[in-house]
């Protein structure tokens, strides 16, 4: 056997947790691929954005801005703002990634997505073994990676997407709903989510992506304030069954 039991188990669970979400990103891989096929961009170069960037919303934005003759710094800058939430995910994963060897951190970092990050942080609450953790993350992240690239390839080759009547746009809020609900396990987390949603909507007039960052920071700040207030007022009860502190 090439891989030991811990590795195989981790990969298998990661794959299983991520499979439905990975199927869910295929339509968006197709959307990006079709946009490439219908653009002025060389199809191979367009396709290579999948493996090189691996962040769907930003890939679509970059292509749209390029096609509308935006200045390169506007196109790249706007796309980077959409991806800036990855810095927050990097922070959220830092405590668990600390226990991984450097080449694992650099390799797994490449595959960091909304899905791999949130699935892993939920899994890591009950899984404290660094080796099992990194294999789980790899299983989930590689599954998503494969389906995303496959969807893009189908879109580039087929050149036509799924009919609008299938409403695959709805998959976006749906997927994030499936990811956020398991993360709402105590009062500070619920407050952070509610404030974040309200601020994101309230700042909807701001440039794409910046309202999401505004919402996220407002949510994290108010959630943190509630955590500290509950701790200092001696409430003791943080409203959660487990404090979830990473102590591995």
């Amino acid at each position: 056997m090439l891989l030991n039991e811990v590795a195989r188990t981790g990969l298998r669970i990661g794959f299983r947790r991520c499979f439905a979400l990975a199927v869910g990103v295929v339509p968006f891989g197709i959307v990006y691929g079709v946009a490439v096929a219908q653009s002025s961009v060389n199809p191979f170069v367009g396709y290579m954005a999948g493996p090189l960037v691996f962040a769907g919303a930003s890939q679509i934005t970059l292509l749209e801005l390029y096609e509308s003759d935006a200045a390169w710094y506007v196109a790249v800058g706007t796309s980077l703002i959409i991806n800036a939430r990855l810095i927050l995910y990097s922070a959220a994963l830092a405590p668990s990634f600390q226990d991984f060897p450097r080449r694992w951190r650099l390799g797994l970092g490449y595959m960091m997505t909304d899905q791999a990050t949130s699935l892993s942080l939920v899994e890591f609450r009950n899984q404290h073994d660094p080796v099992a953790r990194r294999w789980f993350y790899l299983g989930a992240a590689a599954t998503l990676w494969t389906f995303w690239q496959a969807g893009t390839l189908v879109g580039v080759l087929a050149g036509t997407g799924l009919p609008d009547s299938l409403q695959f746009e709805f998959m976006i809020p749906l997927m994030f709903t499936a990811l956020v609900v398991p993360a709402l396990r105590n009062r500070p987390a619920i407050l952070a989510a509610v404030v974040s949603a309200l601020v994101t909507v309230g700042t909807g007039f701001m440039p794409p992506g910046t309202n999401i960052l505004a919402g996220a920071f407002a949510g994290i700040a108010t959630g943190s304030a509630l955590t500290w207030w509950m701790a200092s007022s001696g409430t003791g009860d943080t409203g959660s069954e487990d404090t979830g502190v990473e102590e591995s």
Partner: peptide, 26 residues
């Protein structure tokens, strides 16, 4: 660490809000 744990609920909720509640900025 308590603050870092608020990142997924805050970011994911912002993504739900922006993709569900907003349509072209309104």
């Amino acid at each position: 660490e308590a603050m870092l744990q608020l990142i997924p609920p805050a970011v994911l909720s912002a993504l739900v809000a922006s993709s569900l509640a907003l349509e072209n900025g309104s």
